[in-house]
């Protein structure tokens, strides 16, 4: 099928080509500038961060060697006995794992309750008073900016060693991050029920209870489950600073070079995290589906 190609006159073509090339040049210059800035940042950061690639590559075998060493020695003939030796302390570890899960659960629950109480105060569509709203927001921001582990370190000094400071640290951090997410959900609700409730003479708490909560509850639950997943991971390291859970045994195994214990505990943690992820994902999909049906 022959096509007739219309050619533009030369004058027009050169003008167009020039504009095109100028545009390309402009873009290229911008990309080079960004690349240069990034390279300078890398150089500065490597200098401050004491990056020594030569040393790293010279000792790279230590890294692979480490992972090689933490692998247990398993033989096919004596598999049962080898496994039993690898997980020699399984009862104790499972108990610590239950502790870890409970720390994560209580931390999430307490944090979610706190976030639920504060999120309505931090939403622009429910609270017109900027003083209340902004102070609620700044408080939540503070709670989520300070890392859990810093709270845990402080609380371990105040409350003593054990799971309690871990739970409280997780709860405060969870309150901060869930509070922000909850407030965003509340700000995106349909305002008609709120107006209806207000028009019918409902007080502020009644408005929240009957016009806002039914709209947001399934989303809140879904975010809470997501946070629970994250908190299981966090709870597994709370033991590093003495705040309970399986982290205590892990840090000991790593510091004292009990190689096969490291892999045994790590595998337990990874398996638990994956199971929790799968379970909460299913629950969350059901919750979201339930929310959309209504």
């Amino acid at each position: 099928m022959p096509h007739a190609v219309t050619l533009l006159p030369d004058a027009q073509i050169t003008a167009l080509t020039r504009t095109y090339e100028a545009a390309v040049r402009e873009r290229r210059r911008a990309s080079l500038l960004v690349a240069a800035v990034i390279l300078i940042c890398i150089a500065l950061a490597s200098w401050v961060g004491e990056v020594k690639p030569l040393v790293f590559f010279a000792h790279a075998d230590r890294l692979t060697g480490y992972f090689w060493q933490i692998l247990p020695t398993l033989h096919w003939q004596t598999l049962g006995a080898d496994l039993a030796e690898w997980y020699w302390n399984l009862d104790h570890w499972l108990k610590l794992l239950v502790d870890t899960l409970l720390i994560a659960y209580l931390g999430t629950l307490l944090g979610a309750i706190g976030a639920f109480a504060l999120c309505f105060l931090a939403s622009a569509n429910l609270v017109r008073n900027p003083l209340i709203r902004l102070s609620a927001r700044r408080f939540l921001e503070f709670c989520r900016t300070v890392p859990e582990l810093v709270f845990a370190l402080l609380f371990v000094v105040a409350f003593g060693l054990g799971p309690m400071p871990g739970v409280l640290a997780l709860a405060i951090h969870t309150m901060g991050s869930l509070g922000k997410l909850f407030a965003e959900v509340v700000e995106n609700i349909d305002m008609k029920p709120v107006e209806g409730a207000t028009a019918a003479g409902a007080s502020w708490t009644e408005t929240v209870r009957f016009a806002v909560v039914p709209q947001v509850l399934s989303n809140f639950a879904s975010y809470g489950l997501l946070r629970f997943e994250i908190n299981v991971r966090e709870a597994s390291i709370m033991g590093f600073v003495g705040a309970g859970g399986i982290g205590q045994d892990l840090i000991e195994a790593i510091r004292k070079f009990y190689y096969s214990d490291v892999s045994a505990i790590l595998l337990l943690i990874i398996a638990t995290v994956m199971l929790i992820d799968l379970g909460t994902e299913k629950l969350r999909h059901r919750l979201i589906g339930f929310g959309e049906q209504r």
Partner: peptide
């Protein structure tokens, strides 16, 4: 992803 950053840090401290 299942292993926390702090665990990695601890492992790398023993290595590098």
């Amino acid at each position: 992803r299942g292993v926390d950053k702090l665990i990695w840090a601890l492992i790398y401290v023993t290595v590098v």
